[in-house]
């Protein structure tokens, strides 16, 4: 039999933490780094280590994404105790939508990278493609053949 499954996803880098190691050693850390840089390239953003609030104060984060449409930037931080991935920005002045789009894209890229790596680890030949849906936005299609 074959089937079709749908899932909602959540990022939490807790594999290394549960083994008593630091979150930077988590296999997902490098994947998140890759997803952030892919998002920066796709959306013409710079990757930094800070973002700013309305008053111009700099806030440290693990990855910051800054661009013309979101000059204060959006920060991504992994909680060192729980592995939860937190997206933060100061949206005052109408940046909420752009911040949401960046967050969605990072999560989408992260999920796609994980799926491609999982299929490759199970010896599938993997192909990745992208389609743009007029309503649902970008979709990433991953095909694995064994």
């Amino acid at each position: 039999m074959s089937h079709i499954s749908s899932y909602k996803t959540e990022i939490k880098l807790d594999s290394a933490l549960s083994a008593g190691r630091s979150v930077e050693e988590d296999p997902g850390w490098d994947v998140l780094n890759e997803a952030v840089h892919a998002t920066a390239e796709e959306m013409n953003l710079d990757v930094t280590r800070t973002f700013r609030d309305y008053y111009g104060r700099s806030i440290a984060c693990d990855w910051g994404l800054v661009g013309p449409d979101i000059p204060r930037g959006i920060g991504i931080t992994v909680d060192r105790k729980t592995g939860e991935v937190v997206f933060a920005c100061d949206p005052y002045g109408g940046f909420e939508r752009t911040a949401g789009e960046i967050k969605d894209r990072v999560v989408q890229n992260y999920a796609s990278l994980c799926v491609a790596k999982a299929l490759a680890a199970l010896n599938y030949n993997v192909e990745v493609d992208e389609v743009k849906h007029p309503v649902e936005g970008k979709k990433i299609l991953i095909k694995g053949v064994l």
Binding site: Y7, G137, I140, K143
Partner: peptide, 14 residues
């Protein structure tokens, strides 16, 4: 064969 569709904000259909 496994076909995966990753939607906006990471929903996955396999």
């Amino acid at each position: 064969r496994v076909d995966v569709e990753v939607g906006r904000s990471g929903q996955v259909k396999i």
